[in-house]
Computed example of a mutant assay.
Amino acid sequence: MALKSTIYKAELQIADMDRHYYGDHALTIARHPSETDERMMVRVTAFALFAHERLEFCKGLSDTDEPDLWQKDLTGAIETWIEVGQPDERRISKASGRSNEVVVIAYGGKTSDIWWQGVRGKVERLSNVTVWSLGEGIAEALGRLAARTMRLQMTVQDHAAWLGSADADPVAIEWTVLKAPAQA
């Protein structure tokens, strides 16, 4: 018998001064049996950083045809495809062809560096792809915020972000842009 996903609930308050986005979100997050707290919380962080009324969690790990998050327009076309982790270049290329914008948020320190060197040559040719790498230890710090029921606050100001809860100090979210989309 296959293991089932574990359900997490989060009340997420977002104050993004850079994008002028302010909102409260009641999230239901299905954590795949093979997923770690760190990866799940990086997904929640990605949601907070790219929040939009149509952004939603997808099947991600349990479905190879869906990302971790996506935003679709009113016709069902994919506007933004967000991957968390270290997807291979074929997956990124496929996502690039299916959506207007692809965002990859890599984490894992040295392993992210090795992954990027392996996919960089092919991914850099894709004009609608953005790749970020989270700073060393951030995923682990985010993982410590994980609880079955969470009340989280995300603040974004001047290209800096913090995710926190009432039970823990906020985690400073630092990233490096490895690849930005091509300018039109």
Rank of each mutant, 00 (worst) to 15 (best):
W81L: 13
Q117M: 07
V104D: 12
K179L: 15
I14R: 11
A95M: 02
T28G: 04
P181F: 10
E53T: 05
E101G: 01
Y107H: 14
D16G: 06
A48T: 11
M150T: 03
D65V: 01
L178Y: 12
V129H: 09
S127G: 01
A48H: 13
R19H: 06
R31Y: 09
A10E: 13
L49C: 05
A182G: 01
T6Y: 05
A168G: 03
A139S: 15
E89N: 14
A48K: 06
H20K: 04
A30Y: 12
H32R: 06
G135T: 07
T64K: 08
I82Y: 08
K59R: 13
L142W: 05
T80G: 02
A26T: 11
D63G: 01
R91Q: 14
R98M: 14
V123W: 04
P170H: 07
H25Q: 08
N128G: 09
R54A: 08
D113I: 09
R43C: 15
S112C: 11
L163F: 08
G135A: 14
T28L: 10
R90W: 07
A95P: 00
H25Y: 15
R151V: 12
E66V: 05
E136Q: 12
S99D: 02
D37P: 00
S62H: 02
Q183P: 00
D113Y: 02
I29P: 00
A46G: 06
W116M: 09
A172Y: 11
R120F: 02
S112P: 00
M40K: 07
P87E: 11
I105P: 00
V42M: 11
E53S: 11
R125K: 14
Y8N: 05
T111D: 13
A51F: 06
A106R: 05
D68S: 07
S5V: 02
P181H: 09
V156L: 06
T75A: 03
K179R: 15
Y8W: 15
I82T: 09
A10M: 13
D18E: 09
H159W: 10
A106V: 00
R98D: 10
T36N: 09
L178W: 15
M150D: 02
I82D: 07
R31G: 02
E38C: 11
V42T: 08
D16C: 13
